[in-house]
Design a protein around this nucleic acid. Structure first.
Lengths: 248, 248
DNA sequence: GTTGCCTTACATGTATACAACAGTATGTTT
DNA sequence: AAACATACTGTTGTATACATGTAAGGCAAC
C-alpha cells in the first residue's frame, strides 16, 4: 500500500527508530506522532502496523505501540533464523550467480580487506569502523542478491534491520586488549568472507553454504557473548546510526 | 493488536480466503466487507493490512485489496524458503526435542501409516484424503514444535498457509494410472517421514536435516510438475477447505 | 500509614464524513 | 469513424468526532 501520507509517516518513524532517536521500549503515541508529522492519526496507525510487521515495533491493544524490545530467547531464535536463511542463500548464490554478482561481492571483499588493514595499522579504530560495517553489509547483500531469490533476500534484510534495532546503540570504548581481540576477529571475518566468495565463484553450493553457516555461527556466538557480558539483555555493538541504511 | 472488531474482521476474511470462498484474485472492497461483517471500514482496513503481511492478500494504493495471486517465480521462491527453514528446523528438532515432542511426531506418523494403507486398499481415495493431509500437516508441525524456535515455526506456518491459498482449490479427479502414481508417492512420503523421525529420535541433526531437505525437494518438484501440467500457473492440489486449519 | 475502591484522565479503537484518485464512459473534434 | 479530451462513478485515503478501555491518582475506610 503506497498512499502518500502513510508512507511519509512510515519513513519518518522508521528513520527515527533506526537512528536510535526512538530507543527500544519508547512509547509511540499516535496523536503525538501525528502532530509531529503533520498528518492525522489514521496514516500514523497504518504506519505503526506496517512497522510492527517489519518487527520494529510492538503493538498491544489499548496500550499502544512501542519500539520493539527483545528477550534474549527471541534474539537467539532470530539469529538462528538468519543462519538458516543466509546460509541457504549462500548455497543458492553458488548456483545462480552471474558475473556481475561476483564482481559486486569481490568489490565488497576488497574494500573490507583494505579497511581492515588500515584499522589494524591505526591506533584508534573509530573513524573507519562505520565504513567497514557498511562494506560488510554490502558483502552479505551481494551474496543474497546472487542467490536470485527476492523473497529470501527481503526476509534476511528484515532480520538484519530488527537485529540492528534491538542491538541498541551502545558502542562502548575498547581497551587495548579488546582492540587486539577485535583485530583478530576482523582478520578471521576477512578470511571467512574470502572462503565464501571462493566457494560461490567455484559454483560449489555445499562449501558456500557450510562456510556461511560457520561464519554466521561465529558471529552469533560473539554477539551472544557480548550480550551476556553486558548482562542487560541488549547487545552492544559498535555501529553508529546511518551506515546500515540498506532499505529495500 | 487485539482490538475486538479488527479481530472479527480479520478472522472473517481470513476464513473465507482459506475456505476458497474468496478465490485468488478476488477483489476485497472495504465498504462491502464492512457491511457484511457489520463493522466500519476502519477495522476492515486494519484486517486487510494484517492479511497482507500474512501474505494472503495484495494491496495496491487506490486500487484496493485482492486475494493474493502468485507468479510461478514467486511460488518457486517461496518453496525454496520453506525448504531452507523447515530442513533447518528438522536439524534443530534432532537436538532440542523432548520426549513429548517425539511421541507427538510418532502419533502423526502412525496415523498416516494407517490411513495410507486404507487409501491404497480402497478403490476411491476421496473420503480419507483430507484426514491424511491433516495428519501430514500434524507431522510437520510436530517437527517444527520440537525444534523449539517459535519464530521459525511461525514463519513456516505462514508459508504453509500462503502455499495453500495460492495452490487454489482445484482438486481434480484422477484416472486409475494417476491413482497408482499417487499410491506410490504416498508410500514414499511415509518412508521419508519415518526416516526423518528416526533421525530426530536418534538426535542426529545432520541426517534429520538432509532427510527433510530431500523430502521437501521431492514434494516441491512434484507440485511444480503439477503446475506446469495444468499450465494455468496455479497449483492443483487435492485438499478441501478445513483440514489445514492450523492457525497460530 | 496503608490499603482498597472509585473516579478521572488520556490514549486507543471505531465510525463516518470528506477529499483524492483510477478507471470508464461519453461526447466532441478532426 | 476514430481518437482524444473530459466528465462521471465508485473506491480508496485522510481527517476528525465519538466510544471504550486502561492506568493512575485521589479519597475514604481501616
Amino acid at each position: 500500500m503506497k498512499s502518500v501520507n502513510t508512507d511519509v509517516a512510515y519513513e519518518h518513524i522508521r528513520k527515527k527508530i533506526l537512528s536510535g532517536e526512538y530507543p527500544p521500549g519508547r512509547a509511540l503515541m499516535t496523536e503525538l506522532l501525528a502532530t509531529e508529522i503533520k498528518v492525522s492519526r489514521t496514516p500514523v496507525r497504518d504506519a505503526l502496523r506496517k512497522l510492527e510487521t517489519d518487527g520494529l515495533v510492538t503493538i498491544r491493544a489499548h496500550l499502544g505501540a512501542s519500539v520493539k524490545r527483545m528477550e534474549l530467547r527471541e534474539f537467539r531464535e532470530m539469529c538462528d533464523l538468519r543462519l538458516a536463511l543466509e546460509s541457504h542463500a549462500a548455497g543458492l548464490a553458488a548456483v545462480n550467480h552471474t558475473e556481475g554478482d561476483l564482481s559486486e561481492i569481490r568489490y565488497a571483499l576488497e574494500a573490507m580487506r583494505r579497511l581492515t588493514d588500515q584499522i589494524i595499522a591505526a591506533s584508534q579504530e573509530q573513524p573507519l569502523l562505520s565504513e567497514l560495517v557498511r562494506e560488510d553489509v554490502r558483502f552479505h547483500i551481494a551474496v543474497m542478491t546472487a542467490a536470485k531469490n527476492d523473497l529470501m533476500k527481503k526476509e534476511i534484510l528484515r532480520l538484519h534491520l530488527v537485529n540492528r534495532v534491538v542491538s541498541g546503540t551502545m558502542g562502548g570504548k575498547k581497551s587495548s586488549v579488546q582492540k587486539a581481540e577485535s583485530d583478530a576477529r576482523r582478520r578471521l571475518v576477512l578470511v571467512k568472507h574470502n572462503d565464501i566468495y571462493t566457494a560461490i565463484a567455484a559454483s560449489d553450493p555445499v562449501t558456500a553454504k557450510r562456510e556461511m553457516e560457520f561464519h554466521l555461527q561465529e558471529l552469533i556466538d560473539h554477539n551472544l557473548l557480548l550480550i551476556t557480558r553486558t548482562e542487560t539483555g541488549v547487545l552492544a555493538r559498535d555501529l553508529t546510526s546511518e551506515e546500515l541504511a540498506y532499505n529495500s
